[in-house]
Design a protein around this nucleic acid. Structure first.
Lengths: 332, 332
DNA sequence: CTGAAAGCGCTTACAG
DNA sequence: CTGAAAGCGCTTACAG
């Protein structure tokens, strides 16, 4: 009978007429061959009756581990990271782990670091799409980097963005586009640097190819402005390759605002294939990035790491999804 | 000097030549008038030098509280809940609390309940947009309900959706619309029931008003189908009121697919004013719901509750945002 | 097959 | 102004 508040294992022990150790062993599922069936049964019944749930703080303290992982993402104002969380949480749950999301530095601000936070009681870290080195010199906890520079110390799980971007370039080249605008994300992250490099190389290798580049925040109205600058040039590109579906949505608005038809006058491509790609008209040709799988594979790798093994780095294929925002280049 | 792993307050005490209690008092910021400045200084230096951070599990165990709150949301596949989290986390951080997100039952599945999860070491619960009674009979932890039926036991923080829906109806009525279709969300939640009731009443009060209603998941292609059913009726509505911006995006596609212009032939309204409302063309007339403030006010209320006070229920105004998807009803 | 004891790292009365 | 001690609730060697 608990005096007050939540029952403890001591209360269960008393109710079942056994010792605290017996309760612990039974409820941990380690009774086999150690505790008689009758006793085990009595313990479980008492626990049920009292509504006993173990105090996790005490267990963590005793065990020196929390079975909780911190997922650091740049923002939750993007469906992408919701999907990463979902994948990570699913795999974690299968192994009795919880996932705590920490949007950083978006919400917490750069001053606070993820490890000074109140929910810092964690066993490991999964960090997605962080600017280079931003996590360096912080906590030495086991860590897997998602969608990040593979040159770092920690194991990575990445998308094959190079392949994705080459597919975009190939698709546009086949449609006869030669003068291509890159509406690039003004974000210091590995994935965007990789995309820019690959696109530059692909256009360079294209006979008569010419690349114009401008930068923008990943946000519709800023993207519209940046894309507009490209479209207002005398040597107007016939295709706009955008680093994100949101940027592509802005680029479509810029085109329409200038009386240009997408895709008849300008082709536009996105990247990610999030919800918005299929919401706008015309629906976007884009590269599908399996965000949920990124989270799932990342968590699997972190669990390996926590288990003392050394996971290999993983690269997940992206896939070109051809929809209605690309068409043959207009005759120049 | 820590033997291995993380330094503890004992290590800091030894390094500073003081007792563990002194370390605890100094680092908790309670030194004033109790510990000499020199000693306090020495403790802080030693802690810095060793890179000491308190073990949260131990602190939680000792204090009987975790300074962590669980935010239960139906899904993270919606920007709305990302915004709720952001607001809640900001207020929580100001009070030294952390927020753990738990998408339920979307990710965890209905079988698992939020309190059996590994990250269950929490002081209170913030639950947003849950189906009625779904949390009843679970953990008796202090709780605030967001965007939920105000008839329940727990304090609520809600949007004034009635006012928002009346504004939509008034706007359409002023534009001359009489035959109005409601593309309603097929989701068992207070907010959607409230919207349906208010819209029904508003159209009933409109001379010559007629309401047609169909239901859909909150998802573009399903919404397109549902809106299509309404548009295919012989008594085709001249306006489609949608329970969500995503549904409105689908409704626009349905209209366009039938050669109908939005807004010349059909007006369409959304609800929420999330990203997508300004991404599609025409941009959506919709009701802006301050999701971040919902999270912030909810957390403030929960903090009050945790503090032993009884917070009042709050209703946050929505605001009609008129954009390009509504226009005068076509002459019938 | 079961129990008594120790100890994880912290904070807080209490003693001096 | 500072220290020694107790105890939060758990799990795991160890003893019997």
């Amino acid at each position: 009978m608990p005096k007050s508040g939540r029952p403890t294992s001591k209360d269960v022990a008393q109710a079942a007429g056994v010792s605290q150790s017996t309760v612990s062993i039974v409820l941990a599922g380690k009774a086999a061959g150690r505790i008689s069936d009758g006793t085990a049964q009595a313990v479980r019944e008492a626990a049920d009756r009292l509504g006993y749930r173990p105090n996790l703080a005490a267990r963590s303290l005793r065990l020196g581990q929390t079975r909780t992982v911190l997922l650091v993402v740049p923002t939750l104002s993007s469906l992408f990271f919701g999907a990463v969380y979902t994948g990570a949480a699913r795999v974690a749950a299968e192994h009795g782990f919880g996932v705590v999301v920490y949007p950083w530095p978006d919400v917490a601000g750069p001053a606070e670091n993820p490890f000074a936070a109140a929910h810092e009681a964690i066993d490991g870290i999964l960090a997605s799409s962080m600017a280079v080195d931003v996590l360096d010199g912080l906590d030495p906890l086991p860590r897997v980097m998602l969608d990040s520079d593979p040159e770092g110390e920690a194991p990575t799980v990445n998308f094959d963005v190079a392949e994705g971007m080459r597919a975009v370039a190939g698709h546009l080249a086949a449609l006869g586009h030669r003068r291509i605008g890159h509406v690039a994300a003004a974000v210091d992250a590995w994935t965007f640097r990789a995309r820019a490099e690959v696109l530059s190389a692909a256009v360079r290798d294209l006979p008569g190819g010419e690349l114009l580049r401008d930068h923008t925040e990943i946000e519709i109205s800023a993207a519209r402005t940046a894309a507009g600058r490209l479209l207002d040039r005398p040597d107007r590109p016939t295709a706009l390759v955008c680093d994100d579906d949101l940027i592509a949505a802005g680029a479509c608005k810029a085109a329409r605002g200038r009386g240009l038809d997408v895709p008849a006058d300008v082709s536009v491509t996105g990247f990610d294939d999030m919800l918005i790609a299929a919401a706008v008209e015309p629906e976007l040709t884009t590269v599908r990035l399996p965000a949920e799988e990124l989270g799932a594979r990342g968590m699997a790798a972190l669990l390996e790491l926590l288990d003392g093994r050394r996971p290999g780095s993983v690269s997940l294929p992206g896939r070109l999804v051809i929809r209605a925002s690309t068409a043959a280049a207009p005759r120049g």
